[in-house]
Amino acid sequence: MNITTIALPKGALLKSTIARLQAIGIDFGEFLEGSNRLLRLEDRSGRYEGLLVRAQDVPVYVAYGQAQVGIVGFDVLKEKQLPVAQVADLGFGHCRMSVAVKSDSPYRSVQDLPAHCRVASKFTTCARSYFEERELPVELIPLYGSVELAPLTGMAEAIVDLVSTGRTLKDNGLVELEKIFDSTARLIAHPLSYRLGRVGLHELLGQIQTAAVPA
């Protein structure tokens, strides 16, 4: 009955997320095994349940209260705009949301982009609000992956995407014009559960924040 559900993001943050939880004795290591097909695990104590979901879905599960706790990148929170409590910056998973163009393009800053140019992105909410703030009207092209291709084929003049090392951009002949924001992993919670604070939720949230993770 008094089980706390934690939503874990598939992808880049999963390893560090699992390490952080293991450091406080909550072991969802099975999610990392190559043969794993499970989407839902109970830890040994039986007090915690892990849900393995796509990063974009972490705030959804938490906003609807299906998970009381979640770990997800700030970029996803900015993009999804869902009502979740942002409890702490966990400091891992550094990356940045940036505007990039082809390195041989004439554009050297965002101001150089022509009005109504085409911008491809997986993060259309972030991209829209950024260009609206800049008062630069653009045509957004939503994509689901390999966004770097869009300027190469000529479909878009620019992209808005996450950059961590910059390798992918460079390898594809793209260059960063401007950083929109920095992103790191965030600890989030279901707002109502956070306010009610039952079943040791706040103790758990505190432990996740302060856990010493072996390097």
Partner: peptide, 10 residues
């Protein structure tokens, strides 16, 4: 209002 503790810290 939105329970964003990170924003208060930042």
């Amino acid at each position: 209002a939105e329970l964003d503790r990170v924003a208060i810290l930042a």
